[in-house]
């Protein structure tokens, strides 16, 4: 890019700063006020306290919702990564019927608006008499995050040189041995990165869950129900904790997914 004049550079930075204030500024409100008590709709700035956080640990609804979120997140992540490996191998093996079409189908749920994929699954489950439960939420999340897992894994698998696999066969390894001892170790960082991304997405997924869940709440659904009541300290505390968790996931995902050179430069 070109060399900017001082004035232009300053103007650009100011506009950029404004956008970041818009992006991050609102988040500061619930985070900051989670450390204070709220009385009669006003934040009591004079008396900092952690009571909102203490109250969270006693709130059984939230703890159940949190556990449900973990169950859904881990199951969907596991399934998505497993299927991602499978589909990636299928794609890599090549010369199979309709392979680009199948790839498009896998990407569809990620590209389409969540309301449509949620409604499709809702109707499908109703017509096939599958009761709405955590299981349907897990299926919904798996379908949604699969594209991401698949994409991450297939890119890495494509860059894996064929000669490794051929060498393994030449040295007498079976298909399964080649997969376990040659392919999997080479996919390791892609798998970890994909898993973290999938988990982070599933952890925050709201629209599909809202449509396909039965009586079981996940954390975002619980939050959604609580938020209709207004601005309360326990929501703020929960919001602060979830944001901290998501940020951690982001940092981890970047660690594993970005090529090493990008970090140093």
């Amino acid at each position: 890019m070109m060399q900017l004049s001082r004035l232009a550079s300053f103007g650009l930075s100011a506009l950029t700063a404004l956008v970041f204030v818009l992006l991050y500024g609102p988040l500061l409100v619930p985070i900051t006020s989670s450390f204070f008590e709220i009385a009669r709709g006003d934040v009591q700035w004079t008396s900092p306290s952690l009571s909102a956080y203490a109250a969270l640990t006693r709130n059984e609804g939230i703890i159940t919702a949190f556990l449900n979120t973990l169950i859904v997140g881990f199951s969907a992540t596991f399934l998505a990564v497993l299927l991602g490996i499978l589909f990636a191998i299928h794609y890599r093996n090549g010369a199979t019927f309709g392979r680009d079409l199948m790839q498009f189908v896998i990407f569809l749920p990620f590209l389409m608006p969540p309301i449509m994929i949620g409604l499709s699954l809702l109707i499908f489950f109703r017509e096939t008499d599958v009761p709405r439960s955590l299981l349907t939420v897990i299926i919904g999340h798996t379908v949604f995050v699969l594209a991401l897992a698949y994409r991450t894994i297939v890119v890495r698998l494509q860059s894996l040189s064929v000669s490794y696999i051929e060498a393994s066969y030449d040295l007498g390894a079976s298909s399964w041995q080649t997969f376990v001892y040659v392919v999997l170790p080479n996919l390791k960082s892609a798998l970890i990165g994909a898993a973290i991304l999938c988990f982070a997405l599933s952890f925050d997924e709201t629209m599909i869950s809202l449509l396909v869940t039965g009586t079981d709440n996940t954390l975002p659904i619980r939050l959604w129900a609580m938020m209709r009541l207004g601005f309360t300290p326990d929501i703020n505390a929960l919001v602060a904790l979830i944001l901290a968790f998501t940020t951690l996931m982001c940092v981890l995902a970047v660690r594993y997914l970005l090529p090493k050179e990008a970090e140093g430069t």
Binding site: D204, P220, L223, T247, A262
Partner: peptide, 24 residues
């Protein structure tokens, strides 16, 4: 790299939490 990260992080943050924050 850092600025790009700052653009990407909000994408992974809970949609509903962002709405809630703006709503407040």
């Amino acid at each position: 790299y850092i600025l790009l990260m700052l653009v990407l992080v909000p994408l992974l943050m809970s949609y509903i939490i962002k709405i809630y924050a703006i709503r407040s």
